[in-house]
Simulated assay, not measured.
Amino acid sequence: MKDFQCLAIFTYPFEYFVLKLKLEDASLRHYFQNETLVGLLPLSSVAFGGIRLMVHPSDLQKAKQIIDSLNDKSSPLRIV
């Protein structure tokens, strides 16, 4: 897991829920660092550096495409 790269940082779990489902559907190797910790102590998210989306380098390009598609203004599933 040390080779994984940080692709995005979120403050709260609701901000990336749809993205998480899309990444799992595409079978991309990823994990959300600090996800459980922030879930237990939500007001301390900033102190922990937020929730980091960590993606395997070989899946990085596809993950970026998924994020870009969700950030498109015409997408009904925009990332907060």
Results as ranks from 00 to 15, higher is better:
9 I>D: 05
16 Y>G: 00
66 I>G: 07
40 L>A: 06
44 S>V: 01
53 L>A: 12
68 D>V: 02
42 P>L: 02
74 S>H: 09
76 P>M: 13
34 N>C: 00
3 D>G: 09
71 N>K: 14
15 E>T: 05
11 T>L: 08
44 S>A: 08
2 K>W: 03
70 L>N: 07
64 K>V: 12
68 D>L: 13
67 I>K: 09
70 L>K: 06
57 P>S: 06
55 V>E: 03
2 K>P: 11
20 K>W: 08
53 L>K: 07
55 V>K: 03
50 G>I: 02
71 N>M: 14
34 N>D: 12
26 A>P: 07
60 L>F: 15
4 F>S: 08
6 C>S: 15
35 E>V: 00
80 V>M: 14
12 Y>S: 12
64 K>L: 09
4 F>Q: 06
53 L>W: 04
1 M>V: 01
29 R>W: 01
62 K>E: 15
33 Q>P: 05
79 I>L: 15
31 Y>N: 03
40 L>S: 06
59 D>W: 07
10 F>P: 02
63 A>L: 05
12 Y>H: 15
8 A>K: 10
69 S>Q: 14
20 K>S: 12
8 A>E: 14
25 D>C: 03
48 F>C: 06
35 E>D: 15
70 L>W: 02
34 N>R: 04
75 S>N: 15
80 V>Y: 15
68 D>W: 08
43 L>K: 13
43 L>D: 15
32 F>G: 04
35 E>Q: 05
72 D>Q: 11
71 N>T: 10
8 A>I: 02
22 K>Q: 11
25 D>G: 04
62 K>H: 10
22 K>C: 12
15 E>G: 02
13 P>D: 03
62 K>W: 01
49 G>D: 10
38 V>R: 02
5 Q>D: 05
55 V>M: 05
73 K>G: 11
22 K>E: 14
66 I>E: 06
64 K>D: 03
67 I>Q: 14
64 K>R: 14
70 L>C: 09
15 E>H: 07
64 K>S: 08
78 R>A: 12
61 Q>K: 12
